[in-house]
Design a protein around this nucleic acid. Structure first.
Lengths: 146, 146
DNA sequence: TGCTAATCTGACGCTTACGTAAGAATCAAT
DNA sequence: ATTGATTCTTACGTAAGCGTCAGATTAGCA
């Protein structure tokens, strides 16, 4: 890894994540994206690769789960918390503290997993019903001699 | 089956589908639900079991796929078409006409299936990534002796 | 026929998730 | 230092998807 990578500005972040600058600012406005740390009023926002990853995840969850951005905030609060957890994890020596941090991370991941699995199950049920219908129709076609 | 089943009115339809009368009227307004055939201005809307099924499907697709109601209209246009197809199917004797109807139905079903499968695949990919993260964290916990 | 509950038709309101426009400020390069 | 591209803040606009209220009408029952 090099020292400090090239700074990413809002336009680039938007492109990299398939969004727009307006969307990025809006997400910051509602607390979905913590504003870039210690930015001063009027200065340009600067982002990192980690931010790119975070926005990508938000967009993905938004599109796949169809949650409101408020619900997403709760999930991503977990995500932001995990980043913080990783940072603290590397700088602490206390094993019991490390254990606590890991268990927190685990709970966050499992919250997301439960949501995703639930949605996937629902979709699979629907898929099976559609597949059944398809078979029914195909059987009728076969009965006609096709 | 009895002759004509008890007529279902808008309030009941709403309850049966987990919606509200307003939602039902709105769906009719935007063409998602063909208005109950030959209703006269001011008269109460009457629905059938088939309508219950249709609204249930709409709601399900709405919640699971997160499509706009316009996109849903296209899917349900297919659904309404299938109902019509089934009606005509039973009243026609011409086998080649029957074949044509069945093949139409098949295409409609496959359109829906493609959508549902695509979405399910996306969710599964996300699920795998989350599961991987979970394993990573669990491994670290194990490394700490838990 | 009279009563009551449910429904009807507008029509305006509201929230979410951004789009868009305007004028000032910033940043990188020359 | 000037320029040009990008970004800044502020603020109003918009589309979707209903909620809600008002006053009139309808449907089923005694």
């Amino acid at each position: 890894m090099s020292g400090t990578a090239a700074p990413i500005r809002i336009g680039e972040l938007a492109e990299l994540t398939g969004t727009t600058p307006r969307t990025i600012r809006y997400y910051e406005e509602i607390g979905l994206l913590g504003c870039a740390s210690d930015r001063q009023q009027g200065k340009h926002r600067c982002y990192t690769e980690a931010d790119v990853a975070r926005v990508r995840e938000v967009v993905r969850l938004r599109d796949l789960l169809g949650l409101t951005l408020e619900q997403l905030s709760q999930l991503v609060e977990a995500e932001a918390a995990r980043a913080e957890i990783r940072r603290e994890f590397r700088t602490t020596e206390d094993p019991s503290r490390q254990r606590s941090l890991l268990e927190q991370a685990l709970r966050h991941i499992e919250t997301q997993l439960a949501l995703v699995r639930g949605r996937r199950d629902d979709l699979q049920a629907l898929e099976r019903e559609l597949a059944d219908k398809e078979q029914t129709v195909r059987a009728k076609l076969a009965a006609l001699g096709f």
